[in-house]
Computed example of a mutant assay.
Amino acid sequence: MTKTAYIASSWFNPEQTALMNAGVAALKQNTTVDMDNSYLPLAHQYKGLDTTEHPELLSDTEWQMATFNGDVQGINNTDLVIALYDPKLENSDPGVLWEIGYAYGIRKPVILVLPDGNEMPINLMPAIGVTAVINVADLTDYNFNFPNYVVYQGKAY
């Protein structure tokens, strides 16, 4: 049995992109995730447009609405959310936090994935409002078929 996942992540700077790439690579090795039918927003850009090549799209209302609605449907149509999240101020992305909150609100399991060795405190909302908090190193072997609730043990504020 495998689960489909909405893979929330950021790609606005090199550290965020590295976290996303490491997370996706690990998930491709996990036998409990159906990566072929999962939803990585960057792989589902509206009309195939790349915001890296066309940053002006970020200001385009049509692109914004289509991206928002596509991502919401991605969350709605998958079994769970895997949120790759770096809590460092320069890497924290309110979009990922919104996706976590929306998934929580519609009762989807949410697995918050932190960078290996993270020691940054996490805001209590994503720390407590998720099913489990794991590290990138855990992604390959984590059983997404049974994402049991685990109380976050790290520093929260």
Rank of each mutant, 00 (worst) to 15 (best):
Y46F: 13
D86N: 15
A103M: 03
H44I: 02
Y85H: 15
L97R: 07
E62N: 11
D71F: 03
T78E: 07
K88Q: 15
Q45M: 10
L42Q: 14
N76P: 00
A83Q: 06
G95I: 01
T52Q: 06
T51K: 06
E56P: 10
L40W: 06
G48P: 10
G105R: 10
W98A: 11
G70P: 02
V81K: 02
L80D: 01
V113Y: 06
A66V: 00
F68K: 13
E99V: 09
P55L: 05
F68Y: 13
T52G: 12
I82F: 10
T61F: 08
D71C: 11
G95H: 04
L114P: 00
T78W: 09
N76D: 14
L57A: 11
L112H: 13
Y39I: 00
L114Q: 03
P94H: 07
S59Y: 13
Q73L: 13
L112Q: 12
G105S: 12
I82D: 02
S59F: 13
S38F: 00
I100R: 07
V110C: 05
S38C: 03
L89Q: 15
T52P: 00
P87F: 04
V81A: 01
S38K: 05
G74Q: 00
K47Q: 14
L49E: 13
A83V: 10
M35I: 14
G95A: 06
T78M: 07
D79Y: 12
W63S: 10
L58A: 14
P55G: 08
Q45W: 06
T61V: 13
